[in-house]
């Protein structure tokens, strides 16, 4: 297992370099000039030249990338065109996105799995239909609609939660955005758990567990559940990465100053180093989440062994 983890970490290095290069190229190819965008109406040709030289903007693509990536390996993520350190931006904004993503993750894991299990156990009954319709609803409705409606109903009308912003800190400010961000995945988790649970409830080993005279609670909780959680854990792990990166709309609706908002802003300002830096961070999270899933996989299913 230890060797497996080391190998996976080493494999991550070329992935990281390749992906950052790709993102760098894409930003490079974006039309428009960042310095002109920066100066707006008062264009100063002399200052423009100085800035272009400082940010290596007239160097070939590969050289620009080299300047960037060698900085990254020295621990320097670079600065924005207004001179702010990108590391500062990350340090300030990342905790907000992390809190939001983890809140959403908690909601989707707990509510999704519980709804899935109940739905499977009450298959074809009223509760199953309620869960089915609820998941259909959550999958179909766009995030910004759900976000605005909940904001209006729970925040403005009933004053149960803050409407937007992060003044109330965790958890108060993050409950509503967390729920909204979790909505779609929660629905998928519920359905996945249901399918997988129904399959294992029908399996031979559950029949054996019943024939052993185990109480129903034990048959379901110990024998059926552990097997049916294997695919669910995979999905959850993959999803943790996309919760971080996919929070752009949610952060916008609830006015949370996280990574997502910054990313959108930097793309429109053509701030290459910021975009690449943030995306690199998200990719790192993806890679770590994937590794954790693979390790968890072996813990849940002893038939899987990594050499």
């Amino acid at each position: 297992m230890g060797r497996f983890v080391v190998r996976r970490v080493l494999q991550a290095i070329p992935v990281l370099i390749g992906v950052t290069f790709l993102i760098y190229c894409l930003v490079f190819l974006l039309p428009g000039d960042p310095i002109r965008a920066l100066m707006g109406e008062k264009q100063d040709p002399h200052l423009a030249l100085v800035l272009r030289a400082r940010y290596h903007l007239d160097d070939p693509l590969v050289l620009q990338y080299w300047h960037y990536i060698s900085g990254v390996f020295r621990g320097d993520l670079g600065t924005t065109y207004t001179g702010r350190s990108i590391s500062d931006i990350v340090a300030q904004r990342f905790p907000i996105t992390l809190k939001l993503a983890l809140t959403a993750f908690g909601f989707e894991a707990v509510i999704g799995i519980l709804a899935g299990i109940l739905s499977a156990l009450k298959r074809g009954k009223f509760l199953d239909n309620v869960v089915f319709i609820a998941t259909l609803f959550l999958i179909s409705i766009p995030v910004f609609v759900l976000g605005n409606v909940l904001q209006l109903e729970l925040g403005v009308k009933f004053k149960l939660t803050p409407v937007a912003g992060i003044e109330d800190g965790w958890p108060a400010s993050y409950v509503l955005p967390g729920l909204v961000l979790a909505a779609t995945s929660m629905a998928y988790i519920a359905r996945l758990t249901r399918t997988s649970m129904i399959e294992s409830v029908r399996s031979d080993y559950v029949r054996t567990a019943i024939a052993k005279g185990l109480p129903r609670r034990r048959v379901i909780g110990v024998h059926a559940l552990r097997n049916s959680l294997i695919p669910v854990v995979t999905f959850l792990g993959m999803d943790l990465g996309s919760l971080m990166g996919g929070a752009i709309i949610t952060e916008r609706v609830f006015n949370l100053p996280g990574i997502g908002g910054q990313l959108a802003q930097s793309v429109s300002l053509r701030e290459g180093p910021v975009v690449v830096g943030l995306v690199t961070l998200l990719i790192l999270i993806y890679l770590v989440a994937n590794l954790v899933v693979d390790v968890l996989y072996a813990v849940l299913d002893p038939r899987i062994r990594y050499e």
């Binding site: 080993y205 024939a211 552990r226």
Partner: peptide, 16 residues
């Protein structure tokens, strides 16, 4: 009353 099933591989829980 106890029962022995046909296919022991599928009748035993794989993760326990």
């Amino acid at each position: 009353i106890a029962m022995i099933f046909q296919d022991a591989l599928s009748s035993l829980n794989p993760v326990l």
